[in-house]
Design a binder for these strands. Structure first.
Ligand SMILES: [Zn+2]
Ligand SMILES: [Zn+2]
Ligand SMILES: [Zn+2]
Ligand SMILES: [Zn+2]
Lengths: 135, 135
DNA sequence: ATAAACTCTATAACAACTATAGAGTCAATC
DNA sequence: GATTGACTCTATAGTTGTTATAGAGTTTAT
């Protein structure tokens, strides 16, 4: 299987696959006589694993760590858990941050009722005022 | 006022201020005899405006647009409103996305109860399985 | 005169891709 | 056998909003 087919099968772009190889998320593929990368089913599996992780916003270094653990099946999985906990924390922190932001944005948006000139625009006036101290 | 003082007063780093100048968010500062940038109170105001916008996650192009509108006080402020609406939409979309993500992460996290070996780790097993189709 | 603290420009790094350019490979057609 | 088209290769730059350098120049104080 050449890289184009792997791309179709997995839904990862060709460049992304090459990028993952350069970043050592997948092993360097064997090459054909004409220097084309060649892949097998194992590559499909691994790429889908990576894609799944990415869909959960895990970073490439985090995924690299998970892949390494996956390769040493005897190890304890405390490391995996710690990583997941930290990652979940960060996601939740980001949600809180965006939620606070959203409230401020909606409040700001309410301060303009269209059809005004910029001069009287509550949005711009509020943006010009000293920002709300936000931690 | 030189750039270091402006930085202290506004809380923007020196590099950030130079960056904003390059990106035309603030006008090119006048220079001293020794080629140092010189600022006045208006620069402080404008930088605080930008900082306030950034704290709301408005992008630099968006801020550039707001600043331009601010400079033409006769214009209608429909543009401002449209931008804010779009921005709010995006923030809310991101919140939803992260919330869904968070649920999946927590579910995944529950599939491992520590002290197991990686081989039996529910997290890694689930990550290896075909991802949940997520729109 | 010299040192410390500041400023200048230009450039690279960050994350995770995406998009080019320019060259090479392969299969099929004429 | 030459040409076309689809594919692949490497290398490089762009995305976003900073942050961090390097190496040089300026100002202020001692
Ligand atoms: Zn993470
Ligand atoms: Zn308005
Ligand atoms: Zn926006
Ligand atoms: Zn586990």
């Amino acid at each position: 299987m050449k890289i184009g087919e792997l791309s179709k099968v997995t839904g990862c772009s060709v460049q992304t696959i090459r990028h993952y190889e350069k970043e050592h998320l997948i092993a360097s593929a064997e090459r054909s006589e004409g220097n084309f990368r060649l892949y097998d089913e194992a590559a499909v599996e691994q790429l889908l694993f990576i894609k799944h992780c990415r869909s959960l916003d895990l970073s490439l270094p985090e995924i690299r760590q998970l892949l390494a653990l996956n390769r040493s099946p005897g190890a304890q999985c405390d490391d995996v858990n710690r990583m997941m906990d930290r990652h979940i924390e960060q996601v939740e922190a980001r949600i809180q941050e965006l939620t606070r932001l959203n409230e401020q944005l909606r409040m700001l948006r309410r301060s303009c009722s269209n059809r005004r000139t910029v001069e009287q625009c509550g949005i711009l006036r509020n943006l010009s005022a000293t920002p709300v101290s936000s931690g």
